[in-house]
C-alpha cells in the first residue's frame, strides 16, 4: 500500500523531477498524526510510472488550491525537524 503525502509549492514549475530535492511534506496517513510535517530529501516525478517505487504526492499551490494531477515521491532521507532561518525571513528580504 503506497503512502500518501502532501506538499505546497508557490508554483508547480518549481518542483524538479528526477533529481534529489529538499522539500517539506505532510504525512497523510489516516489517524491522529495525520498532517505531521517532515523535511525530506526525495526524488519526485510527475508520472508515477517513471517512479514505480514511489509513494503518492498530492500537490497544492501556495494558496492551498489542489493541482489535479498527483505526483510520485521517493523519500531518500528525513532531514532535521526544522530549518535554519529567520522568522518572517521572506518579509525581511522583501523589505530590503
Amino acid at each position: 500500500m503506497k503512502k500518501e503525502y502532501l506538499t505546497f509549492t508557490p508554483d508547480i514549475k518549481n518542483l524538479k523531477e528526477n533529481q534529489e530535492v529538499k522539500l517539506t511534506v505532510k504525512d497523510l496517513t489516516p489517524g491522529p498524526r495525520k498532517y505531521d510535517a517532515r523535511i525530506v530529501k526525495a526524488i519526485l516525478s510527475s508520472d508515477s510510472k517513471r517512479l514505480p517505487e514511489g509513494d503518492v504526492l498530492h500537490v497544492r499551490s501556495w494558496t492551498g488550491m489542489r493541482y489535479p494531477q498527483t505526483w510520485a515521491i521517493k523519500i531518500l532521507k528525513e532531514l532535521e525537524e526544522t530549518e535554519a532561518g529567520t522568522p518572517h525571513g521572506e518579509t525581511i528580504n522583501a523589505q530590503k
Binding site: 523535511i39 494558496t63 492551498g64 529567520t86 518579509t91
Partner: peptide, 26 residues
C-alpha cells in the same frame, strides 16, 4: 527560535480568503 523556521500556512484567514503561506514561519 530566533534562528530556526519551518513552512507555515496557507490558512483561510479572517478577511474571508486564503492567501499564500510562508516559507519562514515563526
Amino acid at each position: 527560535y530566533p534562528d530556526r523556521t519551518a513552512e507555515e500556512g496557507p490558512f483561510g484567514e479572517y478577511p474571508g480568503y486564503r492567501m499564500e503561506g510562508s516559507k519562514n514561519g515563526v
